[in-house]
């Protein structure tokens, strides 16, 4: 199976279809939310088919509830398999989070305590997905606003152990790292120092919003603004350690004109190219 190229990508929005068909620029791959392509036919599939012929593709699920206490939804697994069979994406990824309970879908990526019990359940869910889809998946680190007294395992160790036991890859969202570290008053660089970077097969970068709490800022993973400068700095540090990785710019709300999003991708391209040149020089 092909891999995503170690180059910039963007989350595809229909408003940018014409621009992406006209010229790829720095864009080497596209990512779509799986759930937006689960209708039977029509424009979503017509656009995705046309783009698929020109770009590498990442299908990114938001609704599988891998971190949930309920069994995975078989109907949803089946929809994912149909989608992956149809488009043969270079990557399929989901989140370390839960979003469904008692048959109801909550439409948010909700947090879970990190314990031996939840670790075993997440690993079982990842195993089930990989077996059912017949492919390796990536799991993304979350942005969180609260933590749990029940947790006994650091998030980085939790993710490392999921990857070790299940064989899945990791999707490192650097903005999520910065959001969570800021919110929990910990250090993002320390988190990244502990992160199992050798399992990372894709990076996400996105914008966040800021609220003010009496104790300091509370960052919200809003995907409605450019990537913040401290997140770019963390990203450059990561790429310096890993070498070039597929890097997605996520912008889901208050969608900008195409040139604004393309400029974000170009900024990632510059960092990736610089590191690629360093590696070429060393070799």
């Amino acid at each position: 199976m092909q891999k995503l190229p170690p180059a910039p990508g963007v989350g595809f929005k229909p408003a940018h279809f014409a621009a992406l068909m006209a010229s790829p620029g720095d864009i080497a791959f596209l990512e779509v939310h799986a759930e937006n392509y689960m209708g039977a036919g029509g424009q979503p599939h017509a656009q995705l088919s046309a783009l698929r012929a020109r770009y590498a593709l990442s299908i990114h699920g938001v609704g599988l509830s891998i971190g949930g206490s309920s069994p995975l939804d078989n109907a949803h697994l089946q929809r994912l398999r149909i989608l992956c069979d149809r488009y043969q994406p270079e990557s399929f990824s989901e989140h370390l989070a839960w979003s469904s309970h008692g048959g109801a879908y909550l439409n948010d990526l909700l947090p879970l305590p990190y314990t031996e019990e939840t670790l075993a359940r997440v690993v079982a869910h990842v195993d089930q997905v990989q077996e059912y889809l017949g492919r390796r998946m990536l799991l993304e680190n979350p942005s969180t606003y609260v933590a749990f007294a029940q947790s006994t395992i650091p998030e980085t160790a939790f993710l490392a152990e999921i990857a070790r036991r299940s064989g899945c890859g990791l999707l490192l969202d650097v903005n999520n790292v910065f959001v969570s570290a800021t919110n929990h008053r910990t250090n993002a660089a320390s988190y990244l120092a502990d992160f199992p970077l050798h399992h990372v097969a894709e990076v996400h970068l996105g914008g966040h919003a800021t609220e003010d709490l009496p104790s300091g800022p509370l960052l919200i993973d809003a995907h409605g603004t450019p990537v913040a400068d401290p997140v770019w700095a963390l990203y450059a540090d990561v790429i310096a350690r890993t070498g070039p990785l597929p890097t997605l710019i996520e912008w889901d709300n208050d969608l900008p004109e195409w040139p604004v999003l393309a400029a974000e991708a170009a900024r990632a391209h510059t960092i990736l190219a610089r590191q690629g040149a360093v590696l070429a020089h060393v070799c």
Binding site: V146, A147, N183, L213, L218
Partner: peptide, 16 residues
């Protein structure tokens, strides 16, 4: 079991 660096802010954080 919800915790935060400043426990008085847990409700505000959950509101997100």
């Amino acid at each position: 079991g919800l915790i935060a660096p400043d426990l008085s802010e847990v409700a505000r954080r959950f509101d997100v």
